[in-house]
């Protein structure tokens, strides 16, 4: 019975989506999109238009997204508290190849993440992607040695400091150009397609990258060390 209902639901959904296909493909840009496409580069100086939209035109939304991520990580950290005194199954230590490889690759991976978020206004990617790559570097260390001690105080400090800097950058826009998170007039726009261009966008993306990276790294550490459910306690 359940399968039949599911099948009928899938077929209905397919029909509805199929009807929606022509609606979802407009043939010309709307007025807002046309303004972005025509003036986006001239107004913000970034060669990646997506970045200009995410960080400048819709910068306030991005601030909200970062806040949502912070709240979810804080919630996970609250729910998955470390429980001391619980005897869980000891992991088999990783082999020497994995440990050496993790130590070798940690620096290039983190450097690559930094490259992604610093070049957010020039190449695809930006703060979120770069932060995820940085967190993946930390994850590599954790995979090689589960009980590696991460500096949680430092991660928290980095996270709060970067969130604070984001708001500060927005206030700088308010002070210099008259609107929150404004770009023009705060920092020089520079010449097109150079690293030091696009005004305040690279600064904000660096801040987002550091914030996302430290948050995700802390989340992974908390999840790995949370006490297991019944599957693990049964082996006590």
């Amino acid at each position: 019975m359940k399968q039949i209902v599911a099948l009928v639901a899938v077929v209905l959904l397919a029909v509805v989506l199929w009807r929606l296909v022509p609606l979802a493909a407009p043939t010309q840009l709307g007025p807002v999109a046309r303004h972005y496409a025509e003036w986006g580069v001239a107004e913000n100086g970034g060669s990646n238009l997506v970045t200009s939209i995410v960080v400048n035109y819709r910068g306030f939304d991005t601030l909200g997204e970062v806040t949502v991520l912070f709240l979810s990580v804080a919630g996970a950290g609250f729910v998955l508290r470390r429980r001391h005194g619980l005897v869980v199954h000891e992991p088999i230590p990783a082999s020497e190849i994995v440990q050496t490889g993790a130590r070798l690759l940690f620096a290039p991976v983190v450097l690559f993440g930094a490259y992604i978020f610093v070049h957010g206004h020039l190449t695809p990617g930006g703060g979120f992607q770069g932060g995820a790559v940085v967190a993946s570097g930390v994850l590599l260390l954790l995979l090689a040695d589960r009980d590696r001690h991460l500096p949680h105080g430092f991660l928290g400090l980095l996270e709060s400091l970067s969130g604070f800097s984001y708001v500060l950058a927005g206030l700088a826009g308010l002070w210099a150009a008259g609107s929150f998170l404004a770009n023009r007039g705060v920092l020089p726009l520079g010449s097109w397609n150079r690293l030091l261009s696009a005004g305040i966008i690279p600064v904000i993306y660096m801040v987002i990258g550091l914030k996302v990276g430290s948050e995700l790294a802390a989340l992974l550490d908390v999840m790995m060390h949370a006490a297991g459910g019944d599957g693990e306690e049964a082996h006590r």
């Binding site: 990617g125 979120f128 992607q129 995820a132 790559v133 967190a135 993946s136 994850l139 995700l216 992974l220």
Partner: peptide
């Protein structure tokens, strides 16, 4: 790139 960075590893 977002899909790659989030989906592949994390």
């Amino acid at each position: 790139m977002t899909e790659a960075a989030i989906g592949a590893g994390l």
